[in-house]
């Protein structure tokens, strides 16, 4: 036990570990902030489709010899806006359409990757995340994204609340709902794109959804729910990263397991408290 602790303390000496921790805190915060609105607006599945599509972006970058980090974010934005447009135009059910989109982009991405010989070994890292992959440039991107998200949510929180509660009500009050929806979708796709390296395409949506659901179980007051969601996101990312490094586990699944731990704790607390069911 003591040996494990020393091992963990030693790990913190490594720059990669410090980067991973800092990155975890920042993406956890951003994911929790945006996630708090994502689950209430029932866009959870949408964030899942965004995650899967990121692999398509990466594989296209590799195929054409462009640095995947450069192509990932623009691709995520274009893809998200395209899917939003499609969802508004189609007469099909949203969940069915999103299912088509994410299985198709996963399939196409895997086929493309099979042509890019030298990247075959990296597939597991792409799917499940790799803390070693978090570089300095990623930290800067995450930091900027956290800043933008915090400012955006901070300045428009009551507008976002009204849109979340009832869109016609917000339009009647003169809120440009379409613009706000688009900005939100763009931010969501950016945070998914940035989180991909550490968490992996298959699990990135958990980053958006699980901490927010945990926060929802713990609070029914909007103004404590949002910071709580961000805090749970950040702390589960940190704990997950540490476990991943300490026990040599893939980083994405480790973070999600910790998120699940928090979620189950919150569920049990709800079950045993005297309060009415949440």
């Amino acid at each position: 036990m003591f040996g494990e602790l020393t091992h963990i303390v030693e790990l913190f000496q490594f720059p990669f570990m410090q980067r991973a921790l800092l990155g975890g805190i920042m993406t956890g915060c951003t994911g929790g902030l945006l996630g708090s609105f994502t689950i209430l607006r029932q866009l959870s599945f949408f964030s899942d489709a965004l995650g899967h599509s990121a692999l398509l972006g990466i594989s296209l970058g590799l195929l054409f010899g462009i640095n995947p980090s450069l192509i990932l974010l623009p691709f995520a934005i274009v893809f998200a806006l395209g899917v939003t447009y499609l969802l508004e135009r189609t007469r099909l059910w949203t969940d069915a359409l999103l299912n088509i989109i994410y299985s198709a982009s996963l399939a196409i991405a895997i086929i493309i990757l099979s042509f890019v010989g030298h990247y075959k070994g990296g597939l597991t890292n792409l799917l499940f995340g790799d803390i070693l992959a978090v570089g300095e440039q990623d930290l800067i991107t995450s930091g900027i994204l956290l800043l933008i998200t915090t400012i955006f949510i901070g300045l428009t929180v009551r507008i976002q609340m009204l849109i979340t509660l009832c869109e016609p009500l917000a339009i009647a009050r003169g809120v440009p709902v379409t613009i706000h929806r688009t900005v939100f979708i763009v931010l969501l796709s950016l945070v998914v794109g940035v989180s991909i390296k550490a968490i992996g395409v298959l699990l990135v949506s958990a980053f958006i959804v699980i901490p927010a659901c945990t926060a929802r179980l713990l609070s029914r007051r909007f103004f404590s729910y949002i910071p709580l969601s961000a805090g749970i996101g950040a702390s589960s990312a940190v704990v997950g990263m540490v476990c991943s490094a300490a026990f040599n586990l893939p980083s994405g699944p480790s973070i999600v397991a910790i998120q699940l731990g928090f979620f189950l704790t919150a569920t049990l607390r709800g079950l045993f408290s005297a309060q009415s069911p949440t």
């Binding site: 007051r221 909007f222 729910y225």
Partner: peptide
């Protein structure tokens, strides 16, 4: 109704 919000927050909107 699952949206976490108090009456004060709603009326404040």
């Amino acid at each position: 109704r699952r949206i976490p919000m108090t009456v004060a927050e709603l009326v404040g909107l």
